[in-house]
Design a protein around this nucleic acid. Structure first.
Length: 413
DNA sequence: TCTGGGGTCCTAGGACCC
DNA sequence: TCTGGGGTCCTAGGACCC
């Protein structure tokens, strides 16, 4: 059996933890540049604010409802997430974090004599008391079913935050009333294609012919049906090494000049390289992506990306900066207003697993990088000069770093 | 006027090997 | 004129997720 813990309205809930006066009010969290709504309190959902809706389109409605508007504060969300994950790990075996706000746990079947409903409810209360965040819990024999159990637990008041689907008798009625579009793994492309085959509900997908699903949708379709029948076939993620590191931003005003783009890119390379070293990895390849606005008319739009192998597997910011700058120059075209730029590192390997070759007999982390990282970790704001000083993005409604910055510690009066 | 950021997996097709 | 069968590896693109 799997348990799935998923935080309710996570980013919005984080914002409310240290602001009791913001609770039970419409509240939204916005993406970078205060562009889109990425999290909503129940009250904000109630007044019709959509997930992913551009802020400029719902601003009036939000103002009218006297809603709280927050810029994303990932330092806060990440810290609360870590606290919640560590509570789960303390009380459960085999916890696997799946995203910033959810985690699976494998608990074997119920024959162990443990009352998992009781345990899960106790954990919900504990997380609520220790972090201020409400989680919902599902229980089922496959990841796809446990997702559905969790979602249902979240929206049915009678579940009070927990739902177990442990036998076909329990999940089949639910599958019959669940649109196939709501199943985990069915997105906006797959849904219409399933409809075209006459498959409209989760039950319909579960009952569909496996051969036919395989032909139409590949192994993905076949697995979906098996998972809904209670046969677990999604692999546990056995590779703990992430496969890429990406840093990118949309640029508020848009940038046309190569030198300014280069400065911004250097800033991202520095960040990506630091992440790489924090995970004790080295990268083999580097990619640069560059594009104008997705909503630009065709004549004014341009998007391109290009990559190359690094001279040798590396975690050296300087080496990557040189490579990235050359890549940027190779795809940069003057005359466009660029709205997004980013860097991707891939071909990642743990430092310890990188083999020396005849060409590169000494592949080792650079001591200078270690010194820089250590200085930064101790609070020194030290950076390469090539990153420039202007931030080409901005946020108007940033909340405080309540849990990660001494100056922002909440005060009690 | 204003529209996020960061991931994973699968598949098809090409290059190359014997 | 006729031109096999079986592999691996890599990449780009598409789909999905939060």
């Amino acid at each position: 059996m799997f348990l799935l813990f998923d935080c309710n309205n996570f980013f919005a809930s984080c914002e409310q933890v240290f602001r009791p006066d913001w609770r039970r009010r419409p509240l939204v969290v916005l993406s970078n540049n205060d562009g889109c709504v990425i999290s909503r309190s129940p009250e904000a959902k109630q007044i019709g604010i959509g997930m992913g809706e551009p802020y400029f389109r719902c601003r009036e409605r939000l103002d009218k409802a006297r809603a709280v508007v927050c810029s994303a504060n990932f330092a806060l969300y990440g810290d609360l997430s870590e606290r919640i994950m560590s509570i789960l790990e303390q009380y459960l075996p085999d916890v696997r974090q799946y995203s910033i706000d959810e985690a699976f746990a494998e608990v074997g079947d119920s024959s162990g004599g443990i009352d998992w409903e009781h345990e899960a409810r106790a954990l919900r209360r504990r997380i609520r008391r220790w972090t201020g965040i409400t989680v919902s819990v599902g229980m089922a024999p496959t990841r796809t079913l446990v997702k559905l159990a969790n979602e249902t637990a979240k929206h049915r008041p009678s579940c009070r935050g927990f739902l177990a689907l442990t036998s076909p008798a329990e999940w089949e009625p639910l599958l019959a009333e669940t649109p196939v579009d709501d199943i985990w793994g069915v997105g906006r492309r797959l849904a219409p294609r399933l409809h075209a085959l006459g498959i409209r509900t989760a039950a319909g997908l579960a009952a569909a012919d496996l051969e036919r699903l395989r032909r139409s949708f590949g192994v993905h379709g076949e697995r979906l049906a098996l998972e809904l029948r209670g046969q677990s076939c999604l692999e546990d993620d056995v590779n703990p090494v992430r496969s890429q590191i990406m840093v990118s931003r949309s640029l508020k005003e848009g940038i046309s000049e190569l030198p300014v783009l280069r400065e911004t890119l250097c800033r991202f390379v520095e960040k990506a390289a630091a992440t790489l070293r924090r995970h004790e990895l080295m990268a083999r390849n580097i990619f640069v992506v560059l594009r104008t606005s997705r909503f630009e008319e065709e004549a004014m739009s341009y998007a391109n990306s290009v990559g190359c192998p690094l001279p040798s597997p590396s975690d050296d910011t300087r080496l990557m900066t040189r490579a990235a700058a050359a890549l940027l120059e190779s795809i940069y075209k003057p005359g466009y207003r660029y709205k997004k730029i980013g860097v991707i590192l891939n071909g990642l390997e743990p430092v310890a697993a990188v083999h020396p070759t005849f060409e590169h007999p000494n592949i080792e982390p650079d001591p200078l990088m270690k010194v820089l990282d250590a200085l930064r970790q101790n609070g020194h704001d030290i950076h390469f000069a090539n990153r420039g000083s202007q931030l080409p993005w901005h946020r108007d409604h940033v909340s405080r770093l309540y849990t990660t910055c001494w100056d922002d510690i909440p005060e009690a009066h």
